[in-house]
């Protein structure tokens, strides 16, 4: 069985060592400004290449868009 994580409430494939950057690529998220949380913890933007997503994690990724 393929291993899974949840991104914004939807199940997605997961692999060992998967980083935030890998997840963004998989999801085709191209917005320059994102907010990413793994199991409730905010991942600073500078850590996207190194922060590893654990198996079964609940991931939140939202776009930040100018305007206000």
């Amino acid at each position: 069985m393929t291993k899974k994580i949840t991104i914004n409430g939807n199940e997605q494939d997961w692999h060992d060592g998967m980083t935030v950057r890998d997840a963004l690529k998989m999801m085709n998220y191209t917005f320059p400004m994102l907010v990413t949380k793994i199991n409730g913890e905010l991942i600073p933007r500078k850590d996207y290449d190194t922060a590893v997503i654990p198996e079964g994690a609940e991931v939140m990724i939202v776009h930040l868009i100018s305007g206000g």
Partner: peptide, 8 residues
């Protein structure tokens, strides 16, 4: 805020 970078 208005700008996305400020929001972050």
């Amino acid at each position: 805020f208005d700008k996305d970078s400020q929001k972050l």
